[in-house]
Design a protein around this nucleic acid. Structure first.
Ligand SMILES: [Mn+2]
Ligand SMILES: [Mn+2]
Ligand SMILES: [Zn+2]
Ligand SMILES: [Zn+2]
Lengths: 149, 149
DNA sequence: TTCATAATTGATAGCAGTTATTACTTAAAA
DNA sequence: TTTTAAGTAATAACTGCTATCAATTATGAA
């Protein structure tokens, strides 16, 4: 039995094929997909599945702590099965979301969170760090376009 | 003439009472309001103003760089006339958004942005750092509630 | 295995925030 | 002034998401 099944059963949450399928898409890829992307990817295997089920599944997986939600300022949200604290960079041109692995978000939490707690009096639950810009691929395309004009 | 008027005129953007009013609300407060809050605050002075005008004004002010947009994961967006890079902390209980002034977001940009650029190949335009938790006021209320039960 | 039951699913209506459209109005250049 | 490009108000339309509910299914007790 997979780890996710145990986690769900322990919380009296039913293990359904839809939930397993959604989680496996997230676990396999570094894609940070949104609900619509997940829905489209599952369509071949689950042609009857409703978009509402994907939304509800994201909610369940988030609540049990198996995934994290990213908000890069598009309409909808992105999801990530990598729950270790790490930051992300977003391409404003093509919408790509990439991990920034070597950025010290974990150290930051340990060393500076206490300072922010003191300054604000807040009880801090988590931190999100986003970089915004344009990805190498988009930059290359733009250069080519400019060179040919 | 105010600085904002010059900036708008220089870009051939008309200076209207509605735009000035929206900007002055943001400039005066540390409130990080959303569109609805701004709209309600302007109603007494501009009873005829449309919500759509507030939306369009936010867009204009953002594009000319007079304000920044914050996304704390509510439905809508928050706005800030303080455009110097700084991070924010959000109370998940009451929705308050507070500046984290002493957090080294500016230093972070100077010292570590180059590293992230190298790692990802992205051209980085800006950074957003959000802390999430519960504010002192909400924490006190909760304590009182628990003590009396 | 079978069955009872509560949880989940799929379909769809509804909602909130936002954007597009359009006829009327106005700021500001000539 | 007059002209006109830009802006405003009102509102329809769109989008991401949630609520509702009848039909289905996972789970565990018998
Ligand atoms: Mn990630
Ligand atoms: Mn601020
Ligand atoms: Zn890109
Ligand atoms: Zn609070």
């Amino acid at each position: 039995m997979h780890a996710i099944e145990e986690i769900l059963r322990k919380k009296k949450i039913k293990v359904t094929p839809q939930r397993m399928a959604v989680y496996s898409i997230l676990k396999q890829s570094k894609f940070h997909p949104n609900v619509e992307m997940i829905y489209q990817k599952l369509k071949p295997d689950f042609p009857a599945m409703s978009l509402a089920t994907v939304y509800k599944t994201m909610d369940v997986l988030k609540k049990v702590g198996l995934i994290q939600e990213l908000n890069v300022g598009e309409g909808g949200l992105r999801y990530d099965a990598q729950i270790r604290p790490h930051s992300h960079i977003y391409c404003k041109n093509c919408g790509k979301v990439v991990d920034v692995d070597h950025f010290p978000l974990e150290e930051l939490q340990d060393s500076l969170l206490e300072k922010v707690k003191e300054e604000t009096g807040f009880n801090i639950l988590f931190v999100q760090l986003y970089f915004f810009g344009t990805c190498p691929e988009c930059n290359d395309k733009k250069e080519l376009l400019e060179a040919s004009s």
